[in-house]
Write a protein that binds this DNA or RNA. Structure first.
Lengths: 346, 346
DNA sequence: TGGCAGCGTCGATGCGCTTCGACAAACTCA
DNA sequence: TGAGTTTGTCGAAGCGCATCGACGCTGCCA
C-alpha cells in the first residue's frame, strides 16, 4: 500500500505538503505542486479513505435511501439513483445505497457513525418516519418528495400538480368534455403518497376551471382491474372521450381494451399518459405524455446536498431550498382534436 | 459525538473491553458484556466508521458497479441492486454504488483507497476492461455475468443456455416445427453480450436436437423494428407458428402485430418470452415465460463475496466459485399445444 | 498450601491522514 | 537597513478505534 509518507519521500517534501496539494487547502508553489502531483501519479497513490474520513471528519459519502416498495415505476428510481451517483462523483462524493428495510434506524446508523456526510431520501411521504430521525440528529438531508413540514430541509420533486393541470388543459384544448382518470391502486392513495394526490388535485382543479367533467377511479394496473375500471367509467359516463392514465401499468391493458371495445385511439378516444418518455414510444399508438425530467431530479438533489455540506462546513446555516421541476407535455399519437361522439347514447 | 471512551467510562471498563464486546473478537464475561451493551444502548453509541476502517483495515463496504447502458431491462438491475444491498446488510456490510462512468479507474479508486473491501461487477462482458484492473490489484471481486477467463474470480449468472433450451423444448413439446426467434438489437450481439449469445446458443442447440427449424432475427424493440422483423420472418418462413422473444421491449409490439395480422395467440401462434415474471402478467394474453431468479443473483453474489472476504482475512486462498442459476418455464396463456396450420400455403 | 493454568481485563501503540501553529525565507516600506 | 509582512514548508498532535502483549485473578491439582 502506498501512503502519503511514501509520496512525500518520493517528492522530497513533507507529508503535510502532499496533503495540502491534494486537498487544495493551502497555498503551495507551482513547482512543489507539480513535483508532488508527479510523484502521486508515478506511485499510483490513492489516499486511504478511512484515514481521510477520520482525520478530516467527513467521509465524502452521501447516503441514498431507496424505498423497497415497488408500486412506483422502477426505472424512474433507477434513473434517479444513477443520476445521483454520477452527479455526486462530479463533486468528489461517492454514494452509499441504503434500503428502507432497516427503517429509520438505518438512516440513524449511517449518519451517526459518520459513514455518510448527508442523506438523500427518495420517495418521501407525508408523515415519513425517517424525517424526525434526521431532524433530531441535525443530519444534512435532502428529500426527493415533499414532507409535511419542509422547515430546515431541502426538498426537490416533480411538480405533480402542474402535471395534472397539463393533462386537463390538453384534453380541454382538444374539446373533450368527459374524461376518465385512471389512477393508482387504492393502497397508494391510502398511504397518502404525495405524488398521486397532488397529480389528481392539479388535474381536478384545472378540469373544473376548464369545465371538463371527469371520473377518477383507482386501478391496480393488472388487466382485470383495468377492464373493471374502464367498464365502470364507461357505464357511469358513456360520453367519455378522453382518458388520463396515472398508473403506467394500466396503459397497455387500457389500449387493448379500448381497441376491443371498438374505440380507436386517437380517432374516437384520446389517451394522455403520466409516464416517462421512454415508455411512450413502446406503445401503439405512441402516447401523448406528461412527464417530468427524471435525471434532473437526481442532479438537483445532489446540488442541494453539496450546498448544504459546504455551508455546514463553514458554520453557515443550512439553506432550505424547495424546488419543483416542471413537467412537459409531449403530444404524440394518442390524442386527437376531434373526438367523435360516442356511439351509444348517453 | 459519543465515543468508545464515553461508553467505557459509563460502563466502568476500559475502551478495549468495549471494543471486544462490540466485535466479539475476545472472550468477555457475561456480566461485563451486559453492562457494556446497556451503556451502548443508553448512550446511543455508533462506532465511528472512519476510525473502524482505519484501525481494522477493512471498511465493511462492498462496491456495486452498475452499467450505464440501458439496453438491459432496467428493473432487473434494480432488483439485483436491492437484493445485494439487503443481503449485504444481513452480513454487516454496506453497499457503495459505483457507475461505470469512470470506467476501470473508478473500480481502481474504490479498491485502492480502501473505500470498499470488495467489488461486485454487474453486467460483465467478454473482454471486460474492468477485470484486468481488479486482477492486477488482487482486489476481491465477484462478477455477475461470465468473463472470458473466470480463473481466480467468483462469478454468478443466470444459466442463459438452459433458458434458451427451455424455450426450444417447450415449443417442440407443443408441436411447433417452425419458430421465429426475435432477438436484441444487433448492437447487443456486436458487443458480444454473453447473455444474448448464450441464450441463442442454448436455443439453437436444443432446437436442432428437437428438429425445430428456426430463424433468428435481431430486433431493436421499437414498434417499427418489430414490425419489420416479423414481416421478414413470416416472409421467409410463412409456416412459423411459434415465437421466442428475447427483447422484452418487442413483446408488446409483437402481440399487437400478430393480432393485426389476424393471428390469435395462443390459438394460431405461440409466444414464449424471455423476461421477468413481473412483465408476464402485464400483457394480454399473459405470457408464457422463461425467467431466472433475479433476487437470487444478488444474494448469491453477496454470499460469494462474504466467503472471499473472510477467507482473505484468514489468509486462506480465495474460493473461485462459479454458479449458474437455473431458469424456470412458467406456462401461461400465450402458448398452446395445437397450433393451427397457417392460413397461407408454405 | 504452593504452583500453574487459563480467563478476563487493561494500557499502550499505531492505522494514514488533516490541520494547527511554528518558522525560515523572501519581500515590503519607511 | 531594520522592522514588519507575506509566502511556502514543516513537525507534531490528534481523529476514534482495533489489537497485541502484559497482568492480576480465580480455581484446579499435586
Amino acid at each position: 500500500m502506498v501512503t502519503i509518507a511514501d509520496v512525500a519521500r518520493h517528492a522530497g517534501v513533507s507529508p503535510s505538503t502532499v496533503s495540502y496539494v491534494l486537498n487544495g487547502s493551502h497555498q503551495i508553489s507551482e513547482t512543489t505542486r507539480g513535483r508532488v502531483l508527479r510523484s502521486v501519479a508515478e506511485l499510483g497513490f490513492h489516499p486511504n479513505a478511512g484515514a481521510r474520513t477520520l482525520a478530516g471528519r467527513r467521509s465524502r459519502i452521501i447516503a441514498l435511501v431507496m424505498p423497497l416498495r415497488t408500486d412506483m415505476y422502477v426505472p424512474v428510481m433507477m434513473e434517479i439513483a444513477i443520476s445521483v451517483t454520477t452527479e455526486a462523483r462530479r463533486h468528489g462524493y461517492d454514494v452509499l445505497l441504503v434500503t428502507d428495510e432497516e427503517g429509520p434506524e438505518g438512516v440513524r446508523r449511517v449518519a451517526a457513525s459518520g459513514l455518510a456526510d448527508g442523506v438523500i431520501l427518495m420517495d418521501v411521504e407525508l408523515g415519513d418516519p425517517r424525517i424526525p430521525a434526521l431532524r433530531a440528529r441535525g443530519t444534512q438531508a435532502v428529500l426527493i418528495g415533499l414532507p409535511d413540514d419542509p422547515h430546515q430541509l431541502s426538498c426537490v420533486d416533480h411538480d405533480f400538480t402542474a402535471a395534472g393541470a397539463l393533462c386537463a388543459d390538453h384534453l380541454a384544448d382538444l374539446g373533450h368534455r368527459d374524461v376518465g382518470f385512471i389512477g393508482y391502486g387504492s393502497g397508494v392513495y391510502k398511504r397518502h403518497a404525495g405524488y398521486a394526490e397532488r397529480t389528481l388535485a392539479g388535474f381536478r382543479e384545472r378540469a373544473e376551471q376548464r369545465r371538463v367533467r371527469f371520473l377518477h377511479r383507482p386501478c391496480e394496473g393488472t388487466y382485470e382491474s383495468t377492464a373493471w375500471t374502464l367498464t365502470r367509467i364507461l357505464a357511469d359516463r358513456p360520453g367519455t372521450t378522453g382518458f388520463v392514465v396515472q398508473n403506467e401499468a394500466a396503459i397497455g391493458p387500457l389500449l387493448g381494451l379500448l381497441k376491443a371495445a371498438g374505440r380507436s385511439v386517437p380517432e374516437d378516444t384520446s389517451v394522455v399518459a403520466l409516464c416517462p418518455e421512454q415508455l411512450a414510444e413502446q406503445h401503439t399508438p405512441a402516447l401523448t405524455t406528461v412527464s417530468g425530467p427524471g435525471q434532473e431530479l437526481g442532479r438537483v438533489a445532489v446540488g442541494q446536498m453539496i450546498r448544504r455540506l459546504t455551508a455546514a462546513q463553514r458554520g453557515e446555516p443550512p439553506t432550505d431550498e424547495r424546488v419543483l421541476l416542471q413537467p412537459t407535455l409531449t403530444v404524440r399519437q394518442s390524442t386527437n382534436g376531434q373526438p367523435s361522439p360516442p356511439k351509444e347514447p348517453s
